[in-house]
Amino acid sequence: MSDLIRLLGVSARGRHGVLDAEKRDGQDFVVDVVMEVDLAPAGRTDELDRTVNYAEVAADVVEVITGEPYDLIEKVAAVIADRVLARPLIAAVEVTVHKPQAPVGVPFGDVQVVVRRGRDAPVVIALGANLPTGDGIAPGATLLAAAERLRELPGLTEVSLSPIFGSAPVGGPEQPDYVNAVATARTTLAPSALLAALHGIEADFGRVREVRWGARTLDLDLVQYGDPRPDAPATSAVVTSDHPHLMLPHPRAHERAFVLRPWLALDPEATLRLGERSVAVRDAIRDVADQEIHELEGGA
């Protein structure tokens, strides 16, 4: 069963309705928000930034209720759901908007509209390795095996893997050359849950995090979560986060040929969110043309 945060009975006065009097005089609205969140990290660490700040969600709800007037409470519910789902820890949300003073014309107790929204977003995952695993699996074979693990991951579908490239290390201590690839997929997982699953796969292949930018048996980076196009629906919109535990989009992806080259080989129309704008990967790669990288025959 999924963990839930229930925020019930948030009330404010708004001017939503199809009648002129509703727009002019306003009326009271009450909203319930139920959020599906993995609360294990918060329970383990007792840190606020590992969960959803429901005070901020409540403020968002009030801002929508008291803000731009809409004809339909269906629209009010959808706008609230979209704003809530922008938070990277939330996998799904249910929003109930109550309109107890609606001009129904007969005695009634309440009018409610309920909308449910879950995620269905494209994702980009960078794979890299430059050490054999403890049982002797070579880095190239590790990437292929890791891709199979991604295909088996619940909540991740349509996994495609790029050709495998070889690249010289960028930064860090002296170490062997890397093999690199990029996978694209779709997911219903929240960004934080997907990242945790990627870390679990890394651990299964013997990844340790002792030296920053050091050699590794497997590295799985969540490069981008969501569709960076401005007209993307909220359920697949790009997610941005500057939290140390979840940096999205990856802050250095546009500087790394070992991410851009495989990504472009897999998707010639690939687009990367960079700050407040989106950049075609085919254009971004021009800035890293001096970085050593080459496609490997047979993925070896």
Rank of each mutant, 00 (worst) to 15 (best):
Arg6Trp: 02
Leu8Pro: 05
Ala12Ser: 09
Arg13His: 06
His16Ser: 03
Asp20His: 09
Phe29Val: 06
Phe29Gln: 04
Val30Glu: 05
Val31Phe: 01
Asp38Tyr: 12
Leu39Val: 15
Thr45Ile: 15
Asp46His: 10
Asp46Gln: 08
Tyr70Gly: 00
Tyr70Asn: 00
Ile73Gln: 00
Val76Lys: 00
Val84Cys: 13
Leu89Asp: 01
Glu94Ala: 09
Thr96Asp: 00
Val97Asn: 00
His98Ser: 09
His98Trp: 06
Pro100Ile: 15
Ala102Phe: 11
Gly105Pro: 03
Gly105Tyr: 07
Asp110Thr: 14
Val111Arg: 01
Val113Phe: 01
Val114Ala: 02
Asp120Ser: 14
Pro122Lys: 09
Pro122Phe: 14
Ile125Pro: 02
Ala126Leu: 10
Ala129Gln: 03
Gly134Thr: 11
Ala138His: 12
Gly140Ala: 03
Ala146Trp: 00
Ala147Trp: 10
Glu148His: 12
Glu148Ile: 10
Arg149Met: 06
Arg151Cys: 13
Pro163Glu: 03
Phe165Leu: 05
Ser167Leu: 08
Glu174Ala: 15
Glu174Ser: 15
Gln175Pro: 09
Asp177Thr: 10
Ala185Gly: 12
Ala185Met: 13
Thr187His: 03
Leu189Asp: 00
Ala190Ser: 13
Ala190Gln: 03
Pro191Tyr: 02
Ser192Val: 11
Leu194Gly: 07
Ala196Phe: 07
Ala197Ile: 02
His199Pro: 04
Gly200Glu: 13
Ile201Gly: 12
Ala203Glu: 05
Arg207Leu: 04
Val208His: 05
Arg212Lys: 15
Ala215Gln: 03
Leu218Met: 12
Leu220Gly: 02
Asp221Ala: 12
Asp221Met: 13
Tyr225Met: 10
Ala232Cys: 09
Ala232Gln: 06
Ala232Thr: 07
Asp242Ile: 13
His243Thr: 12
Ala253Tyr: 04
Ala257Ser: 14
Val259Lys: 07
Ala265His: 02
Ala265Tyr: 03
Leu266Gly: 11
Leu266Cys: 13
Leu274Ile: 14
Asp283Gln: 15
Asp290Gly: 14
Ile293Met: 09
Leu296Tyr: 11
Leu296Thr: 05
Gly298His: 00
Ala300Val: 15
Ala300Gln: 15
